[in-house]
């Protein structure tokens, strides 16, 4: 398992348990995210508190999950991101497609 899940109000918080999010765990992450979305979770908040690095394979898995979620009318939020990771997401404009918050409690409109 790459994700540890718990309900926070009506949001499902999925904490990523790995520190380096890369090619070796991207497929597993995608599988787990698709499962959560297919189970009908409408608001999924991905907690990155343990993640120190994301490579393009993992980023691809995140974006695929987002596309799948949008197709099912679900939302994905990102929280607790390290500065380096936020900087990377901004550089390649992925911050425009994900809803990014500092903490889960900051999520509005969910």
């Amino acid at each position: 398992m790459i994700l540890e899940n718990k309900k926070v109000g009506h949001i499902l918080e999925a904490t990523i348990l790995i520190t380096e999010a890369n090619l070796t765990n991207a497929e597993q992450f995608k599988q787990e995210m698709f499962d959560l979305i297919n189970k009908g979770n409408q608001h999924i908040s991905l907690n990155f508190v343990r993640v120190t690095y994301i490579d393009s394979s993992f980023l691809g898995a995140m974006v695929s999950s987002l596309k799948h979620a949008l197709g099912k009318g679900a939302e994905i939020y990102l929280t607790d991101l390290k500065k380096d990771i936020i900087d990377l997401l901004r550089l390649i404009r992925v911050d425009k497609v994900f809803k990014i918050y500092e903490r889960i409690n900051d999520i509005t409109g969910a």
Binding site: E20, N22, T52, Y53, I54, D55, D84, I85, D87, L88, L91
Partner: peptide, 10 residues
């Protein structure tokens, strides 16, 4: 990659 840790810095 340095000391088994990946970093990204534009």
């Amino acid at each position: 990659v340095a000391a088994d840790r990946h970093t990204s810095n534009y």
